[in-house]
Write a protein that binds this DNA or RNA. Structure first.
Lengths: 124, 124
DNA sequence: CTAACGTACAACCAAATGGTTGTAGATGAT
DNA sequence: ATCATCTACAACCATTTGGTTGTACGTTAG
């Protein structure tokens, strides 16, 4: 049942969200989920709106959730988030080792697939 | 001390390089290191120069190396690359669990250190 | 030698990113 | 009720990104 397939765009968003020092810092600081956006924003040398945007990026990537509490919005990093990032790496790495590749080949029972698969674009 | 520190910019470049489907695909295809840049480029619906740039991004992130062979430039994925990415995640995750965080707080004698987290328990 | 190939790099362009300020809607405190 | 706070969101701007084409240069094949 193909549970573990993170789509390309999902992985794009995941890694993109992680590719920024401020956002990684936000992740570290929101494990406990007790910080509101404005509270968070006090910690950075930028405007409230800028931090708001960073949180939005993290949220779209599924790394963070917001929970309303009165007029505040508490930010909490999703405990499963690193797991998903790690799985994305794992998928890369298994292609690395050729395992997934080889498996697919076996299932397609192509006897001579050793070499010339490289010219096929993934895009479409 | 503190040997294992990937600097912020290094991690930025790492994750940014991984945050693109085409670049991840290049990584998967270059494990064997037998593909030249132009050979690689044949597989994608974009110009040679565009692929060249993607390879450059991967190279700056340390995910790939180029080795000259005659007039060709063979691209090879660095086997340790995923390891470094994983370590970056590990560093995040340990902050997650509070360990690094706690250490940093102590060293910076941040007033926020006062919390009910006396025990060392990694669960919460 | 000359032609073809593989690469490098510059110049250019559209779109996305990361930041700003400003405005407006909810909510809580006085 | 009024005021201060927290959030959301739009408009704007500079820089970066991801792509293009064109040019130049080294290397291999005829």
């Amino acid at each position: 049942m193909v549970v573990d397939d993170l789509g390309d765009e999902t992985v794009d968003r995941l890694f993109h969200a992680l590719a920024d020092t401020t956002r990684r810092d936000i992740l570290r600081r929101c494990v406990r989920g007790e910080l509101s956006v404005s509270r968070l924003a006090e910690g950075y040398p930028m405007s409230f709106a800028a931090v708001q945007k960073h949180v939005a990026v993290l949220e779209r990537a599924g790394l963070v959730t917001k929970q309303r509490s009165g007029r505040e919005q508490l930010v909490r990093t999703d405990p499963d988030a690193v797991g998903r990032a790690r799985r994305a790496l794992d998928e890369l790495e298994s292609a690395w080792r050729g395992r997934v590749d080889r498996m697919a080949r076996l299932l397609a029972d192509d006897p001579e697939t050793e070499e010339n698969d490289t010219a096929e674009g993934p895009e479409r």
